[in-house]
Amino acid sequence: MGRLKLAVSCSSNMNRSMEAHSFLAKKGFNVQSFGSGNQVKLPGPSPDRPNVYEFNSATYNDIYNDLVMKDKTLYTQNGLLHMLDRNRRIKESPQKFQTCEDRFDVIICLEERVYDQILEDLQTRESVDGQSVHVINMDIQDNHEEATIGALFVCDLCTRLEACEDLDNEIDEVLTDFESKCNRNILHTICFY
């Protein structure tokens, strides 16, 4: 089995998915990252005033500049600027999963809501050629530390999946093993393009 085409997805394609993306890319995985929400949402000065951007149109660079402009100190302090800086070096802009035409072997969701959205999308797509894709969910809280730890887990999982001789046949076992090891709730299903 060659390299797997991987997708990691969180809600805004900012923190968790990008952390995993960066980590996996460094390890040489064939990976893309996505958000599944309607918009890219970043913490604002207060919880009820988030910074909201459109997927695909706003680049990380744009957002970076925007935030610098808005309140450089705040966003430096809470690490947003640092994160965006990292992100813009990985890819252009946040991508929304639902609009992506690419095919994957495995899609890893980092939040149950994201999993639901992605399943909803995959199941309502017009079926094309019946190629299967495994969708896996692993809950990771949306903060820096958890994102870093989460990326390690994701990498571990991907390594295990790639080691499979026959993914379809072994994924159940791998996931059961992995679940007991990382002690996180794993959801898994299969969809067809």
């Binding site: 399943l119 199941q123 299903t189």
Partner: peptide, 18 residues
């Protein structure tokens, strides 16, 4: 397993909703 049950139930739920 527990999480598999959860996945299946989720799957069922989504399909039923549809």
């Amino acid at each position: 397993g527990t999480s598999q049950v959860k996945s299946v139930r989720k799957e069922l739920k989504m399909h039923l909703l549809r």
